[in-house]
């Protein structure tokens, strides 16, 4: 087992390095490098000044060297400065991380809590109306474009009914603390959570239902019944435990996508999380921020994928006890 984990960690690190390099190189290709911007607003700049500035920013070095410098800096903890906000990157990242985690964990937790029971019941009542409707709704949820759904919600709840804010993270200028602050946060987080939850739920319902249906068809379920066990026990002890294996894997992977998946939702609701930061910083060419935000996102995904694989091996004795 440890062998497996170490090999995966190694593999993951390689992938992370490659991706960080590729993203670095691509971002270097983006229009709007700071010296060029200066040149455009100040056409009378002299060539020597341009060269001097480029050397200062290290922009005259080839991509590999620049990447290496960046890598060593970052690993030392020097994450650089944000061009847009004019503060160290570390100042920005913290809050954003908290915001996104708040949004995502709430949504994922809710999605799981609601979807698993629905999926199980739908599977047990395979072929009935409940199953049909559950499956249909899950389908709809998966096909729903999240940005449109968000817009619709804003239209209904923010414009027409005027009960929830149309966007933002907290009320600007508010200095509420403790419970009041939490309540304020809740107002802003509600609609984004709904959007996120619905799309996740759809996936979980389908997976749970699928897994349960598959499991209930197995021979060992027949054996369990032949042993005279109550149906409830058959379902929850024997069936569900087996269906759990793929479900946990899916959930871990979803957890990994927490930053990437939030990008669109956060953009629609102007929610100041890591997702929005990734987008804004890449588009705004805020280089240092973009690299940090982007690579955190990737790292999270890769890490949670590893967790998913490990938990799969952990939950399935056929793999754990080789």
């Amino acid at each position: 087992m440890w062998n497996f984990i170490i090999r995966r960690l190694f593999f993951t690190t390689i992938v992370l390095l490659i991706i960080s390099f590729v993203s670095f190189a691509l971002m270097a290709l983006m229009p709007g490098d700071p010296v060029e911007e200066l040149m455009m607003s100040n056409p009378s700049m002299r060539a020597e000044d341009v060269a001097r500035l480029k050397a200062l920013y290290g922009l005259d070095l080839p991509v590999y060297e620049r990447y290496w410098n960046w890598l060593t800096d970052t690993l030392r903890g020097d994450l650089g400065y944000s061009r847009t906000y004019k503060v160290p990157v570390t100042d920005i990242i913290g809050d954003r991380l908290i915001n996104t985690f708040l949004l995502s964990f709430t949504a994922l937790g809710l999605a799981l809590l609601l979807a698993v029971p629905i999926g199980v019941i739908a599977a047990l009542r395979n072929g009935t109306k409940f199953d049909y409707i559950a499956n249909l709704l899950a389908f709809a949820g998966q096909s729903l474009p999240p940005f449109w759904f968000g817009i619709m919600l804003i239209m209904i709840f923010a414009e027409w009914l005027q009960v929830l804010p149309a966007g933002g993270t907290t009320t600007i200028g508010s200095d509420a603390t403790g419970l009041a602050a939490l309540a304020d946060r809740l107002k802003y987080i509600t609609l984004p959570v709904v959007v996120f939850t619905v799309s996740q739920m759809a996936v979980y319902v389908r997976y749970t239902r699928g897994a349960m249906i598959e499991v209930m068809r197995q021979d060992y379920i027949r054996t369990a019944r032949a042993k005279g066990l109550a149906e409830k026990r058959v379902v929850f002890v024997h069936a569900f435990r087996n269906a759990l294996i793929p479900l946990v894997t899916i959930f871990a992977i979803a957890l990994g996508n927490v930053f990437g998946g939030a990008i669109i939702t956060e953009q629609v609701f102007a929610y100041q999380g890591v997702g929005k930061l990734v987008f804004d910083s890449i588009i705004g060419n805020d280089f240092r921020v973009a690299m940090v935000a982007f690579n955190i996102t990737i790292a999270m995904v890769l890490f949670m994928n590893l967790v998913a694989d490990v938990s799969y091996a952990f939950l399935d004795p056929r793999i754990a006890y080789k």
Binding site: L29, P31, G260, I263, I264, V278, F279, I282, I298, V301
Partner: peptide, 27 residues
């Protein structure tokens, strides 16, 4: 298969953003 697995684990949206925003004309 290694390549496939690696690519499968990458979250697509952030990568798309970089690809889309980058000025590929410079290559």
């Amino acid at each position: 298969m290694r390549i496939t697995d690696a690519l499968l684990t990458i979250p697509t949206l952030p990568l798309y953003i970089i690809f889309a925003a980058a000025d590929l004309g410079k290559i």
